[in-house]
Design a binder for these strands. Structure first.
Lengths: 213, 213
DNA sequence: GTCTATATTAGGATAGAC
DNA sequence: GTCTATCCTAATATAGAC
């Protein structure tokens, strides 16, 4: 593996574990067992490393976000879809730990991240719209818009919020609960019996939690 | 006004405007037109200042959170209640800008903040419970719990999320939209006609937006 | 309580040899 | 591509006079 790639890989790991602010270029060099000078040969400091890591994240996240869901009404498919989205965020969690301050330091990331969030909103709106058109749920336009916004917010801050509440949070459990929190909002709008839907959903979550334990 | 209080006041302002990380003790001293040495006489650096500012925030927020709502079914009262909660957060927004990293730096703030969030959850659960018991809404226990969690999350991250989407966001407008986003979630559970409730709520929001413009 | 002057340190960055 | 050695800078902190 090339030194440049190793730098990216271990930087991501260090950033996630220690927090980007607590990692110095020298730290990265030490973990890789190379000299600081060598690090600077490949990247002119932390900034370009972070930039590249964001580009990687952006690409992966967009890919997952736009992945066509074949059976939008199949619970397990939707579950996996949201699960993977949360997982992407977990993989690059250093970025969310200090979202504001990182984006302020790298203005061009700011607008890219903003577009990414907007992409989330439109994708969520489209999913909710499909559920409505196919007759699975029945929802007013205003409520659908609000729900799409809410989904996007939860898809941004849920993992961070979990860490806030419990630092030692086991990731899969936390993600499954996040997915449940998202999907369960559909309950009152489900045409064919909300109660039944919620029961099914809760059973499904418990099954997933048991599996990941 | 005592120097110690002036330090707190201007530190808060600087932190909010520039971001805590971008403000040095010397910056604070300069704004106050005092010497760095004098600043260190009152506070041993930025850490104790931040600590004191958090204590102030915590106290104010708890006070607002537990303020008894006399008429929990009166729309305008509820609106103001949530509005003020968001406003508190806006007043100490520097804290939320780097929530994770600040809490990691000050471990005792971490547990205090966690308790504050839990307080939010229980308060929201209690409000939703009251609405259910008084017959304004009808909601299952599971959904009520999920909604309380969601309210707490939104009551933590909505202002941050707004800044993420639009740095120049005019605060009162953004807050009103946040309150709308919270309360409108009740719609499908309103016993006495959700459509009517949503219409009323939307009109109310537009009135508030016009007033604050 | 407040100032001036100074010290300490750590993060970030580069030059030049190999 | 990689290393060693070194430098620059900015943030943080203190001593001692007034």
């Amino acid at each position: 593996m090339k030194t440049k790639d190793r730098i990216l890989q271990y930087s991501l790991q260090l950033f996630n574990e220690e927090g980007e602010q607590n990692v110095t270029p020298v730290d990265i060099a030490n973990v890789l067992d190379i000299s600081p000078g060598n690090l600077y040969y490949h990247f002119k400091g932390k900034d370009p490393i972070i930039h590249q890591l964001f580009v990687d994240f952006e690409e992966e996240f967009r890919m997952v976000l736009t992945a066509p869901i074949d059976k939008p009404l199949e619970l397990s498919d939707n579950w996996v879809y949201f699960y993977i989205l949360f997982e992407e965020i977990a993989d690059f969690r250093f970025f969310y730990r200090n979202l504001q301050s990182i984006l302020e330091r790298y203005p061009d990331l700011q607008s890219r991240f903003r577009r990414l969030v907007q992409h989330k909103v439109t994708t969520m709106a489209s999913i909710i719209g499909t559920l409505d058109r196919t007759g699975f749920i029945s929802i007013s336009q205003i409520e659908a818009d609000q729900m799409a916004e809410r989904f996007a917010l939860q898809l941004t801050y849920w993992p961070t919020y979990q860490v806030l509440l419990d630092s030692d949070v086991s990731t899969p459990v936390s993600i499954h609960n996040g997915v449940y929190g998202l999907i369960s909002q559909l309950t009152p709008y489900v045409v064919d019996g909300g109660d039944e839907f919620l029961t099914l959903l809760t059973e499904f979550r418990d099954k997933m939690l048991k599996t990941s334990k």
